[in-house]
């Protein structure tokens, strides 16, 4: 556990880190970003909390078992969306043209809009869940079980 200044600042900063990560996940299909990048940003926020507060305090409200459940749910949603287009082909973009995420942007450079892309935004969200839960679980497990003494100040 680090000093009071570091704890307070990271306590305020985690909100913005989470918002930025979720923004990257949700806008992955019309701006730079995507599931992997946003999930990595969220996991880095967890790592920041881990450095500031120490693993003994974080492990009380962020359990590795729950994180693995979230990662499994993300993987199952990904596979389910991939199989849902099997009527045409595997990974068919069956939502394009329907009212749900069905918009097609005008060709050429222009302003994108979120309500487009078919299955791509849904898959980005599923991948985001997998990556943020998986990397957070790895970081937590490494901090928790790799031994050594916590840094006390």
């Amino acid at each position: 556990m680090l000093s009071r200044i570091v704890r307070t600042v990271s306590n305020q900063l985690i909100v913005f880190v989470l918002i930025f990560g979720l923004y990257l996940i949700m806008h992955g299909h019309d701006s730079p970003g995507g599931g992997f990048q946003g999930g990595a940003v969220v996991a880095s926020g967890v790592a920041m909390l881990l450095v500031a507060f120490g693993s003994g305090e974080i492990i009380q409200w962020l359990h590795v078992r729950r994180l693995t459940v979230v990662a499994c749910i993300g993987a199952l949603v990904f596979i389910a969306i991939a199989f849902a287009g099997t009527g045409t082909t595997f990974f068919y973009n069956f939502l394009l043209g329907t009212p749900i995420f069905g918009g097609v942007p005008p060709p050429g450079p222009g302003h994108g809009h979120v309500w487009s892309g078919g299955i791509i935004p849904l898959m980005e969200i599923a991948i985001g869940f997998i990556v943020m839960a998986g990397l957070s679980a790895v970081v937590l497990a490494m901090a928790r079980f790799s031994g050594g003494k916590e840094i006390e100040e």
């Binding site: 019309d30 701006s31 450079p109 222009g110 302003h111």
Partner: peptide, 9 residues
């Protein structure tokens, strides 16, 4: 430029 059409230069 980067292959992203949103406000692309």
């Amino acid at each position: 430029v980067a292959p992203i059409y949103t406000d692309a230069p």
